[in-house]
Nucleic acid binder design. Structure first.
Lengths: 340, 340
DNA sequence: ATGAAGTGGGACATAATTTGTCTATGGTGG
DNA sequence: CCACCATAGACAAATTATGTCCCACTTCAT
C-alpha cells in the first residue's frame, strides 16, 4: 500500500496534495451541507474560483450535487468520503505518528485526528468523536467518569451518544468550579454528557478558591463528601489541556497570579495546575476535587487537546502525565510535537 | 489496495491520465534508449514541446538522464518502471477485461498487454513476451510446437530465450508454405524459434497450392509424412490471426480469390483459413499440414494477435476457435472487442 | 575528412487554461 | 415583501502550456 503511493509519488509529486485538497472539500461539504460556494471557500481558505473549479470537477464525478440552495454530497460522494477517511489517515502517516508520539511522550496511547483544530471547527468535533470512540472502548460495566471543563471537553460532550451510555455511567466534575464561563464549566459539561448519553451525573459546585478553614468545613458536608469519594474512585478521567496564559485569562485570575505565571514561564494547564516547559508545577488553583497525584490511581485517563497552538502546553503537561494517559490530539499538534 | 486505486480513479482521474502518460514515456525511453527527443516524440505521437516538458520533469525526478547522445533511464527510472507495470495493469483494469473477454469469447484464457500494437512496435514485442511467458507456463516435458507465419509470430520468435528451451522442444511449421515473404514464413519463424531457445526444428516446405494428385504423392514422401505426423501430435500450436484482405494481398492471391473473399465478406484469417464476420469459413488455402479440425485435439492453442485493426478478424476467428484457445492480445484490441 | 543525421537546449510568439472578480438572476426564510 | 444567500455566467488578467524554429554540438557512415 505504501509502496503503491510511493511509486505514484515519483511520477505525480503533487498527487497527495490534490487528493487531500479534494478530500477536504468533500469533507467540508459533507459537514456543512447544504453550503454555498462562497462560505465554503472562505472556510477552506481557497478563493472562490479555485473552489469552483474543484467543485465543478466533483460534480462532474457525481460526488456532489448542486442546486439553488447549495451544494451537498450525493450518496456516492458520501460513500467515497467514508472510504477516504481511512485512506487519508494512512497516507498522511497518522498511524506512524501515533506510535512515535506514544513512545516519545511515554504514555499509554496516542490518537491523532487529521487536520488542525485551530483552523477548523470540524476538527475539534472530530477530536470529540475520537474521544467518544475511545471512551466506548475502555468503559466496562459500571463507571464513574470525572470530567473537567474547557471548550475541548464541551466539544466532546456534544458528540456523545446514548450508545455509549448503554453501560452504566455516572458523570462528575473532576474539580470544584474552576472559573471559566458557565457553558465550559465542568459542571455544565458533565451534565450535558449525562444528558447526551442518557445517564446520570452529579453536580459539584464549590467556590473557586477556599481557605483551609472553609475547606475543612466543606469537606464535612455529606453531599460534598460523597461526591469527593465518587471522584476519587472514578474509573475514567476526561480532561483538556490548555495554554497557561489563555486559561489564566479566561479565569480572570488576579494580577499577582498572572505575574507569577509569567515569571515562572508557565506554558500549560490541566486540572487547574499550571506547568512550565519542564513539566514542573508552578501554580495550582486551590479547589476541592481531583488532585494531580490522584490520577495515578485512575485506570483510564484521557487527555483531549488539539491545535498547533497547544503544542507547548501539551508537551509541558505530558512530562508529568501518568503513564496511563491516552492523548487524543490532532494532526496539527502532532506534527509540531514530533518536530521538537 | 484495490480500494486505493478505485478511490483514485474517482477522485483523481486527471492525474491518473498524467501518470499513464509519464509511464508510457518512461517505457518508450527504456525501450529505445538512448533516444532523442524528436524521434521519441514522433514515436509516441506527442509534439516535441509536450514531450520535452514531460522529459524535463522526469529528469528533475532523476528518472531519466540526458546527455548529448540521447535520453536514457537511470537505474532509479528502471526500477520505477518495473514497479509501475503492475500498477498500470490495475489502473487500466486489464484483469477485469481479461476475464470479461474470456467469457464473451468462450475460450480458455485471455491475456492482455497494455498499449496498441498498431501504434507501437514495443507493444508487439510485449505481445511476444507475454506469449513466451505463457508458453513457459504450459510446456511440460517433451513438446512439439507447431507455429504459423506472420509478423506477429515473428515478434514472438524474437523474444524467445533459451530458458524456455530447458524443456525438450521441437518446432515445426504448422502448415506448408503459406505464401508471405520469407522472413515471416512459418519455416523461417520456427527455425528462429529453435535457434533462440536452443532447441530443434524441422523444415516443411511444400508448394503453396497442390492438386489432389500431387498431394497424394507428396504425402507418401517419408520425410513429409514424418513431419505431418509430428504436426498432428503437437502439444502446442502458436498462431497469429490476420485481417483477411491484408493477408490475401500479402500472399499475392489471384484476382479470382480476392474477388471471392470480397463477395463473401471475409474479414479474418488464421492458418490459411478465411472467415466472415459470422465465423464461417469462406475460403481455405489448400496446403498440407495442420487443418482447422485438428486443433481440437491439441492441448494448448495459443493465438497471438493485437492492434485495434485486427479486431474484426479476431472476433470472426474466435467464433470457430477451439475452447482450449488462449488469446494473447493488446489493450487496443481488447477495448474494441469489448465495445462490440 | 566530411557531411548528413542525430542530439539537447534556447528562444519566442501564440494558444490555452487558470484565476480573480463582478454581475445577473432566482429561490428561501423571516 | 425584502434581505440574504445561492448558482451560473462572463470576462479580463495572469499564468502556463504548446508549437516551431534555430543553434551548436556529437556521432557515424561514407
Amino acid at each position: 500500500m505504501q509502496s503503491l503511493i510511493d511509486i505514484q509519488k515519483r511520477l505525480l509529486p503533487d498527487l497527495l496534495q490534490v487528493l487531500h485538497k479534494r478530500y477536504s472539500i468533500l469533507r467540508h461539504i459533507g459537514f456543512m451541507q447544504p453550503v454555498g460556494r462562497r462560505s465554503l471557500a472562505s472556510n477552506l481558505g481557497y478563493t472562490e474560483r479555485v473552489l469552483r473549479s474543484e467543485v465543478d470537477f466533483l460534480k462532474e464525478q457525481n460526488l456532489v450535487s448542486i442546486n439553488n440552495i447549495g451544494m451537498s454530497l450525493t450518496s456516492e460522494g458520501k460513500n467515497l468520503l467514508e472510504d477516504l477517511e481511512g485512506l487519508i489517515r494512512e497516507l498522511i502517516g497518522i498511524d506512524v505518528m501515533e506510535l512515535e508520539l506514544k513512545h516519545r511522550l511515554k504514555i499509554r496511547k496516542v490518537i491523532i485526528v487529521p487536520g488542525n483544530s485551530d483552523e477548523s471547527l470540524m476538527v475539534k468535533e472530530d477530536l470529540g468523536k475520537a474521544c467518544a470512540f475511545c471512551m466506548k472502548k475502555y468503559l466496562t460495566g459500571k463507571n464513574i467518569i470525572a470530567v473537567t471543563g474547557g471548550s475541548t471537553m464541551a466539544a466532546v460532550a456534544n458528540v456523545l451518544t446514548p450508545e455509549i451510555g448503554k453501560k452504566e455511567l455516572l458523570f462528575v466534575p473532576a474539580r470544584g468550579g474552576i472559573g471559566e464561563d458557565v457553558q465550559n464549566q465542568a459542571n455544565t459539561i458533565s451534565s450535558i454528557m449525562s444528558k447526551n448519553t442518557k445517564s446520570k451525573h452529579r453536580v459539584f459546585y464549590v467556590p473557586d478558591q477556599v481557605s483551609n478553614e472553609i475547606y475543612q468545613s466543606l469537606i464535612k458536608e455529606p453531599e460534598i463528601h460523597e461526591v469527593l469519594n465518587l471522584i476519587k474512585s472514578a474509573s475514567m478521567v476526561l480532561h483538556g489541556i490548555g495554554d497557561a496564559i489563555t486559561m489564566a485569562e479566561r479565569r480572570s485570575s488576579k494580577p499577582e497570579i498572572m505575574e507569577k505565571l509569567e515569571t515562572n514561564a508557565a506554558v500549560g494547564e490541566a486540572f487547574g495546575y499550571y506547568f512550565n516547559e519542564k513539566g514542573e508545577i508552578v501554580h495550582k488553583v486551590l479547589t476541592i476535587g481531583l488532585q494531580l497525584e490522584d490520577l495515578a490511581q485512575i485506570p483510564n485517563v484521557i487527555a483531549v487537546a488539539g491545535g498547533a497552538s497547544k503544542v507547548k502546553a501539551i508537551k509541558a503537561y505530558m512530562k508529568k502525565a501518568p503513564a496511563s494517559t491516552i492523548l487524543i490530539t490532532d494532526e496539527g499538534a502532532a506534527r509540531k510535537l514530533l518536530k521538537g
